[in-house]
Design a protein around this nucleic acid. Sequence first.
DNA 1: ATCTTTCCCACCTAGGTGTGAACC
DNA 2: ATGGTTCACACCTAGGTGGGAAAG
Lengths: 230, 230
Amino acid sequence: VDPTHFSIQPNLSLNQAFPIKTEEIDDRIKFRLTNEALWDNFHKHTTEMIVTKAGRKMFPKFEFTIDGLDPKGWYGIYLTMVPKDQNRYKFQAGEWSAVGQADVRPPAMPVIHENGFIVGNVWMSNPICYDRIKLTNLPQSDQTNKYLISLASMHKYQPTISVYLMNQSPHYHYKLVATWAPKTAEFIAVTAYQNQNVTKLKINNNPFAKGKKGFREGSIRKRSHSSSPD
Amino acid sequence: VDPTHFSIQPNLSLNQAFPIKTEEIDDRIKFRLTNEALWDNFHKHTTEMIVTKAGRKMFPKFEFTIDGLDPKGWYGIYLTMVPKDQNRYKFQAGEWSAVGQADVRPPAMPVIHENGFIVGNVWMSNPICYDRIKLTNLPQSDQTNKYLISLASMHKYQPTISVYLMNQSPHYHYKLVATWAPKTAEFIAVTAYQNQNVTKLKINNNPFAKGKKGFREGSIRKRSHSSSPD
DNA sequence: ATCTTTCCCACCTAGGTGTGAACC
DNA sequence: ATGGTTCACACCTAGGTGGGAAAG
């Protein structure tokens, strides 16, 4: 019966705890996407992520390692889908173009990693994966208390990590010590895939996407795609 | 970016935190099995739980509600499979009998609920379910850091809940404020079901157990069971 | 007309069941 | 022989995919 470390659970309505927040960036904290090669492949074609009302998981997964934390400090790691720019996008003639102003969107909501505030040692010992989150096009106001992130379709987003360190003195508070926004993980939210190259990458790399044994080697269904990628 | 509440994660090897422990039972804290009728049905026939090397989930689930906590206090809830007595059991002539001395067993390990230390308000607002745990007959020493609970086959256990309250003054420590051991949830660990009545209750009530549409209404398999229960 | 969204679906992965034969 | 344990397996539930038609 020994507490080992603390975590703060996401998406719950209580609001006790530590309202005091400061900032003090620690340059020793480093990040690395664990599946960087895969993200790169997608990024070359402009990554698309499906959004649905019920919420769709990200693929590739947003998974990374972190290094340079104080092994005994308590850290919480937040993910925010930051609007990349003020454009609306359109896929035409085989590529994405900015077309006009972005929709008005409510501010991006940070989502704390399900581990919550735990010691640096544990954060650094395993890849960190946002596995429960789902992307949705439902407005935030309609959401149930789940791991849904509201995005606007045909808009570009930058997954961004913020790391907070919990301090205990002179009083309990927490401070921002690192941010990270890997460009290769940016994506455009869509309700249906636009670029067939992206579709093929998803099918070829996501075990849940059919195709591997399905229609790839001749099935009943007729297909109409063409093209090149992996 | 607001912490809402704290939790302590289970089964991790770190050991920082709050070694000081006290006891002060609070009689206002009450518990209730959410699926009491089902537990009762099993208990009438003497509940059996399968243990395997890989770990087997409990059925019925150990799920309950709690009441009478301080809504703003931080509580952690532990589950311990306490050896019920010093007997070894055997199923013979259609019923369980004590036969000789229990094996020597290492002390029962409490498992903290995955929510860890969170405020009473949250504990009281939803049923509490130990959903991740699995029962195994592997010795503790062989285990990976998962939610495995080591039990001895043919021995009787009493699922027991312990509730700890985290105090902040005069220093950080936690104290035992309630225990609960519902007799209807006791069970005998087995590597294969002994009582056919128990098997039938499992099949009829666990959605993962085949039988509902399977061999119940005539299939190829020949069966050799007989009997009565639900 | 054109573009975007929604919905249902077949088809997967992942993993929780008891079975019965083999093993010890 | 006996009785407990293990293992591979068929058969489920649960849920993550893109497809395609239909709707907006």
